[in-house]
Write a protein that binds this DNA or RNA. Structure first.
Lengths: 214, 214
DNA sequence: TAGATTGTTAATCGATTAACAATC
DNA sequence: TAGATTGTTAATCGATTAACAATC
């Protein structure tokens, strides 16, 4: 239960386990061994057992893992057995895409507010939520106990905005702006740098072609 | 020049180096030592030198690295010194966000087409490009030599779509659908699993709070 | 030349895989 | 009980960091 210090490599794999277990659950599969899961997910059975054992014994010798139980335990570990309120700053296409993504709601991420600095968007509705002026965001966060702030704003605005939010009590920033944020320890930052991802893709295209004609 | 087999960990760091070097270049900085870069980027100078030396010597003893030269070399390594044509399948908010992101264009990723299965979107313009019926996508790819296909479609559609595109000559799929794609070796896949990222964020919020009240 | 800083080898650290005893 | 499969320790592999000789 009490996790000491799990490496981020392990954490990064948990959502994928969670996804596969969700599918197995859906299909009515009751139990699964690390070897069977290994075959499906293309990771070693050894790694699966090591990963799960970071959090205590979820399985049973001679039997394997109970799919439902394991699924629930991972959801607890990931903290998606409770609700997290979030607001979005930057109501452009990306902000709207995220606000509208119902799967997040299913996982307990509740979309509470959207903010933009463009007056033309004020009042526009995104999933029953009206876009408000960005200057109201600090008050809104305090009044509504917002945990997570999504940054779908240009990088120039991201750094000063992070500064402004430091004392509002938020717990995390999900940062889509292409800049590294420097915030106090009590605010977690998770970056989604789309252009980095695209550059990696570009590299791997070239790498493959070079492997054919060295 | 000829890279043997560079680990993905190194590749994943290159776009970040590239970003910082771009900023230094912008500010007119001519040379930088691994130690200075280390201070700015919060990675060890040793790692910086190791990373660059995977691709040959970019620096000069006693001097450091020439910012402009290093920037250009990394852009070559990442393959963003040339153009890559791309189309987007799924013209919802996420698709439109990506299509409209001008920074990608700046890096040589040229947006050539958008496809959707919703007839209401046909003809709608996204950056001078009309949304077309998704059934035309294979022909369009062949006629226009498209390299990269962006999947901003639901996961149910992603797997059969990947299958359909196998023989069209595409080189890569940038996959935003929440599913693992199984494609031949000649098609590179780069996943952006947003909900995985959000779950990691959720975990780290909890972890921090537990570190305060163990 | 002397000083600075790389390129590179060696040492350390951490993560993955293999092996097997424990146990259901 | 015998068979299966976990939990866990040990071995291996790879990535990061440290150190320093090469050299600009």
């Amino acid at each position: 239960m009490a996790d000491k210090d799990i490496s981020q490599a392990v954490i990064a794999r948990l959502p994928r386990y969670f996804r596969y277990l969700g599918e197995l659950k859906e299909r009515g599969v009751e139990r699964i061994s690390s070897q069977e899961l290994s075959d499906i997910m293309k990771v070693t059975a050894s790694q699966i057992r090591q990963d799960f054992n970071n959090f205590g014994g979820f399985g049973q010798q001679g039997y394997g893992y109970n799919v439902n139980y394991l699924y629930e335990e991972i959801s607890k570990i990931l903290g998606i057995d409770r609700q997290h309120s979030l607001v979005i700053i930057g109501a452009g296409h990306l902000g709207q895409a995220i606000a509208g993504y119902t799967n997040f709601t299913r996982r307990g991420f509740v979309f509470k507010g959207a903010f933009d600095k463009n007056p033309e968007l004020y009042g526009k509705k995104i999933r029953d939520v009206e876009v408000r002026p960005v200057d109201e965001v600090e008050d809104f966060i305090r009044e509504n106990n917002i945990e997570i702030v999504v940054f779908t704003i240009p990088k120039e605005q991201a750094v000063p905005m992070a500064k402004r939010l430091e004392t509002t009590g938020i717990k995390a920033i999900w940062n889509f702006a292409h800049v590294d944020l420097d915030v106090p320890d009590n605010i977690q930052v998770e970056n989604v740098h789309l252009s980095d991802s695209l550059m990696k893709l570009s590299y791997n295209i070239d790498r493959y072609e070079k492997s054919l004609n060295p």
